[in-house]
Amino acid sequence: MSATTSTDEFIKGLWRENPVFVQVLGMCPVLAVSNTAENALAMGLATAFVLIMSNLLVSALRSFIPKQVRIACYILIIATFVTITDYAIQAISVELHKSLGAFISLIVVNCLILSRAEAFASKNTLGKSLMDALGMGAGFLFALFCLGAVREILGNGTLFGLALFPDNFESWIVMILPAGGFFTLAAWLLIFNAINERRGTS
């Protein structure tokens, strides 16, 4: 495998097939945990970790897993890494675990991870799967951060908890509410598609 193809796999996940902006996968955490940049980043990292580890294991075991029970095996592997992530986050910081709470366990049902295991890792070599997972993970992280930053800036007037505006900033309360997640996602999808279209025509 040459160097160009592996960077290609990486760029594919980050931009051309971005899991959120192009494939629109894993919307539950994208909409739910993107209310602040910090939460979005932590969620993105946790998901990326699970994605990378499960892609690696699925790819390594791809000739060992029979086709009939592959989904069950993938879920088992994914759930394992989610549990590990849960413990790891608890061990890192009680505060962080408190703010992510319910959404860590929900990584199990993030369709992005299962779809990469099924569509890519089960058919490709370890190295390619790693690059794919890194790219997709980075793409997911990037997208979550885009949403989280906009929502935190407008909804709270802060970024990573640092105030960006004078004290009497009027927060757009709707941006922290679930509806704000949909608005922001729609806006980013619009921007993303506009950029891609412009590139395609030129």
């Binding site: 004078p166 009497n168 900033f169």
Partner: peptide, 8 residues
């Protein structure tokens, strides 16, 4: 009120 500021 200035943009993005809350009114008094």
């Amino acid at each position: 009120t200035l943009p993005f500021m809350s009114p008094t």
